[in-house]
Structures are given as C-alpha cells and as structure tokens.
Design a protein around this nucleic acid. Structure first.
Lengths: 197, 197
DNA sequence: AACTAAACTGACCGCTCGGTCAGTTTACCG
DNA sequence: CGGTAAACTGACCGAGCGGTCAGTTTAGTT
C-alpha cells in the first residue's frame, strides 16, 4: 500500500510528464526548455527539480512511460491471433488509432526513431524495442509460411516505416481521409505491394 | 565568365557547406554550432559570416545545395524508362547507393523529413519536393495500369519511407549485407508486399 | 619596398538555458 | 492556534551560443 506521500509524488510526476509531452509536441524535442515544461504544468521551475534530476531525466522518463502503454496496445493486437493479414490489419489499425488520438506521443515517437548522432541515446533503445516486437510477429508468420523468407527485422522495419510516414502525412493534412481507408491502404501495401494484381 | 573573386567566393562557400554537412552528420542538425562549422572548415568563426548571413542561412543553403544533386540522380533513374518495376528498381538502387556514399547527406536528409514542430521549416519544403518527384513517377505508372489505384502521394510516401528506414538500419549495422540484397528486398517489398506468393 | 584594400581573426557582447538554493508558503499535528 | 517540516518558488549563477567588429594578416599593384 503506497503512502499518501508516494501517491502525491506520483501524481506530480505524471503531471510533469504530461506537460512535457505536450510541449515536446509543440516545440520539438530539442527546443523544449525546463521553463516551458514548468509553465505548462503550472508550477515553478525549481519544483520540477524536486521530482526529476535533470532535463534529460524528464524527457527520458516521459518517453519510456508513454511508450509502455503504446507497447501494450500493439502487444494485444499481435496476441489476438488469426492469419498474418488479420494480425497486420489489427496492428496497423492500432498504431494509426493510437497515433491519431495522441499526437503528442507520436511526435515524441518520431524523435525516438531518428537518432544517429554522436550519442547513442536512450530514445533509440525505446524504438528498438518496438522493432523487436514487430520482428517477433514477422518471425511467427514466417514459421507458418505466410511471409516470404527475408530477414524478419528488415521486414519489421519496412512495415513500421510505412505506418509512421503515413501517420505523419495525415498529421500534415487538414482533412485526412477516413482512418479506415489509410489502414486498409497500409495493410494492402504491406501484404501485397503496389503492383496491380 | 565569373570573375576571380567570384570563383574564390564560391570555393569558400562550398568549403563551408561541406564542413557544415560533416558536422551535422556527427552532431545532428540542432546541435551544430557555428564554431563547430568554422573549426571543421579550418577557419575562424568571423570568416563564416563573410559568406553566410546567419547560422540558419548556412544550414539551409547546405541542405538545398546538397539536395539538388540528389534530386538530379533520382530524376535520371526515373527518366530512363522501362516497366514500373524496372524504374522502381533503379530509383531504389540509386537512393541506397547515394545514401551509402554520402552518409552526411543522408543524416541531413533525415532531418528534412521529420519537421512537425511550431515552425514550418524550409527543410520540409525540400522533402516535399522529393515526394512530389516520386508521386509523379507513381502517377505515370498508374496511367499505364501498372500500379493499383490508390492516392499516388500516399504510395510515394510509403515507398520513400521504406527506402529511408532500411538505409537507416544499414547505417546502424557494423557489417550490413550487400547493398544489392537490400535493393532487391526493397524493390520486392514495394511491388509485391511481403506475403508469400 | 611601400602602400592599400580585401580577407581574415578571435575577443567580446547580449542573451538563453540548465540547474541551485535561500527564502516563502502550505499542510499537518499536538 | 502555534509550531514545524515539507513543498514550493523564482531570482540568481555559470556556461555556451549567435553574431559583431576593431584590429591583424595577406595579396596585389606600382
């Protein structure tokens, strides 16, 4: 049983993470300042440092925390079973919906996938986890002979990239077409390619 | 006929752009300082400002300048004609080779595709140009009935995302498999999907 | 060699940001 | 209430950055 202090602490941490996520969505990961986060959360900058030890700490915790929920959703979609096409359909749909509902998270997610600079950031580890999840899905389908015999990780990356960029495109459009249409498009693109059959 | 002064000026500008590209590749777009660029180019910071009017000016010019050459290569690959599969094969191959040979450019390219923050950056315009180029390619193929009847821009985005993320993956690997293998994989993924046929 | 204009330099300025901490407010308990 | 400990605040500090410019070096001309 958590003490009252722990409950309050958790509540504050969550509020700060939520604020951080909104600000990252607005300004981009690299341009977020601690003052921004404090303002967004309606507290003083000093208070932030009572709950997190540095700017990086806030951003990293924000990332991993949000990601856990996303990860769980995809896990569900995979575990529900069925043919590979059905699984892909659910996974694609789950991702599109999740990104659509939580654009702040999606923008954070974009940052996770990209890193390639001097520092191997923790962000990237989070992205790799997601790829690993999809890779297992592909491997299972290959065992059942539903998917071509190519490196599973390559396939997972290809699948994921498509979902991500279509989501990005939808975010840029003022009035994107119905989500179901893009979900179907991505599912078909992944499974059958774009050649007229 | 350019004067001697103009030649020297162009040479200096090119040297600074080259330096900027290398530093961006190492540190990432947002963390590059003007001092970094000056050091890399072997000149003083003040000298940089004789040729460019601001940090943003350097980065923007570096981006568009490098991109023009890339754009031309893809244009060639498209215009050489043939069936859609052949064209895709050439385009994918050209991109993979170009990215492999110029990793600094690729890292710059990654930054172009991503923006989604407060400011609609010029970076993004450059990326849109590339997508527009691919979109035209897809539309031509649709006219000939070689490609399914889906929004051409969506297809272009999907195609491009795959090439990009596979390239990214290759950069992370110490010993990636032969480029031709990935080129074939991407081509097949795009045209036929991943379902076992 | 003497002169000059153009090219170049790097110390400097103003500003922003991450992080600190002395002081203030709040909340709880006897 | 009164007292005290915990929570909170925001002015402040030092570091680092973009951009400037007075001074120095270089290169061309006579």
């Amino acid at each position: 049983m958590p003490t009252k202090e722990e409950v309050v602490e958790q509540f504050r941490c969550q509020a700060i993470r939520d604020a951080a996520m909104r600000v990252v969505a607005r300004k981009g990961y690299d341009h977020v300042t601690v003052q921004d986060i404090a303002d967004e959360a309606g507290i003083a900058k000093g208070t932030v440092y009572l709950y997190f030890k540095s700017r990086e700490d806030i951003l990293e915790k924000t990332m991993t925390f949000s990601f856990d929920e996303f990860h769980a959703r995809i896990h569900e979609a995979i575990e529900a079973g069925g043919t590979f096409v059905e699984i892909v359909e659910r996974v694609v749909h789950a991702q599109l919906v999740y990104f659509e509902e939580r654009q702040e998270f999606f923008r954070l997610y974009l940052v996770m996938a990209e890193p390639l600079g001097e520092r191997r950031l923790k962000k990237h580890a989070v992205y790799r986890t997601h790829i690993a999840q999809l890779t297992k899905m592909v491997e299972a389908a290959q065992q059942k002979g539903e998917v071509r015999d190519e490196p599973a990780e390559r396939i997972a990356i290809a699948v994921n990239s498509t979902v991500r960029d279509i989501t990005l495109q939808r975010l840029h459009e003022k009035a994107p077409r119905p989500l179901a249409a893009d979900a179907a498009f991505v599912r078909d693109y992944i499974c059958r390619g774009i050649a007229r059959s």
